[in-house]
Each structure stands twice: as C-alpha cells, then as structure tokens.
Amino acid sequence: MERRPVVHDPLPAARQVHVSGPGTRLLVEHLGWNAPHAELAARHLPGDRAYRLARALSRTAAELDDAYCLAQRAGGRLREDRAVIDDAAGRSAGVAIQEAAHELEQALQCCELVDTALVRLLAAYLDLVSESGQGHAADGDIGGTCV
C-alpha cells in the first residue's frame, strides 16, 4: 500500500499531478480556482498575512484527499476479502475481514477529522481575504465534504 508523502509546502504539491479528491474539490468549489493549491501558493508568498493559513489550507486539503484514498482502498480490500469467504476459508477470511473493517473505520475517522479541520481553515481563510479585500471567486455556505 503505497502512500504519498505528507506535503509540507503547497508549491511542490501544485507541481505534482494531483488527482482531485474531496479536499481539493472543496477548495475548487469555494475559491473558484481550477488549481487551488497552485493559486494559494502564488497568491500568498512568505511574508503575506495569509501565507501560513494558505499553506495550512492547501496541506489539509491534500491530507483529506489522501485519507479519502486510503478509505477507498480499505473499502476495496474489505469487498475483496468478503468475496473470498467460503466454507473452507471460514475463520481466516473472517479475521481478514475484521482487519479490513477496522482499517476502513480508522480511515473514515481520519477523513472526518481532517474534513472538519479543512472546513474551519477554509472559513478562516475566506474571512481573512474578505477583510483584506483580496476577494475570491465563489461565495456561499461552507459545508463538509461527504466521503
């Protein structure tokens, strides 16, 4: 199970080919930018009042994308393990299913925590840019993403 490294700087993340997950899609929807990671990095350079918040927002969106990907993989593993159950495999397949179910549960809990953090960061970012007159393309209610 290969996992992307944790992104500490939004600029390198913007250069990577990034499959849009729920975190990135939330940024696209509320900020109105097709490439929100790159746009945040370009708009908020070191020394900018919103720099640290923009970096945290980008990182958290990428973390939610990663957590969602892990949850999808755990769900797939659970489906695969359930499919191989037969009378002969009984007990060992049951253990595998329990492990896969636990992995899925943990991944979903992580998604929920990161999603909550992302929504709060996005609200703080939108407040900050509206106060400073920097504006953004999209307005509206910020709801959580659904995994």
Rank of each mutant, 00 (worst) to 15 (best):
A41T: 00
A83F: 04
R49T: 15
R4V: 07
L27A: 08
R120D: 13
T145S: 14
V84R: 15
P5N: 11
Q72D: 10
G140T: 01
Q134I: 02
L113H: 11
H8W: 12
R120C: 10
L118N: 02
Q106R: 12
A50P: 01
A83I: 04
A54T: 06
I142G: 04
Y68D: 13
L104M: 11
S20Q: 02
L126C: 15
G133R: 08
D115F: 00
L108V: 14
N34R: 13
L126T: 10
V114S: 04
H44R: 07
A61W: 03
L122R: 01
L121H: 07
I142A: 04
L26Q: 07
A89W: 09
A88H: 09
H8D: 12
P5Q: 10
D9M: 09
L78V: 02
V19W: 11
R55H: 10
T24Y: 01
E63W: 01
A101K: 09
A137P: 01
R120Q: 12
L57Y: 05
Q106H: 09
G76P: 01
Y125S: 06
V17K: 13
A124L: 12
G32L: 03
H30E: 13
E112V: 05
A41K: 00
L31M: 11
Q109F: 12
A35R: 14
H30M: 15
R15W: 02
L64Y: 01
L118Y: 07
L57M: 03
G75T: 02
R43N: 02
A41V: 00
P10G: 01
C110H: 03
E80G: 04
R73K: 07
E112W: 05
E80F: 10
A100H: 09
S20D: 13
V95Q: 11
A117K: 13
P36N: 04
Q106G: 10
D9N: 15
E63F: 06
E99P: 01
V129R: 00
G133K: 08
E105F: 10
S20G: 08
A35I: 00
L78F: 06
H102T: 14
R59I: 00
E99Y: 09
R25M: 13
A56T: 00
L11M: 12
G140R: 00
A101W: 09
D66H: 06
G47A: 05
D65I: 06
G75D: 11
A13F: 02
W33S: 05
E39V: 08
L57R: 04
A71P: 03
P36T: 08
A61S: 12
L121W: 02
L70Y: 09
R59V: 04
S92Y: 07
R55C: 15
G143C: 08
H30I: 07
A107I: 04
A41W: 03
T116R: 13
L70F: 07
Q98R: 14
A93E: 09
A50F: 10
P12L: 05
A62R: 03
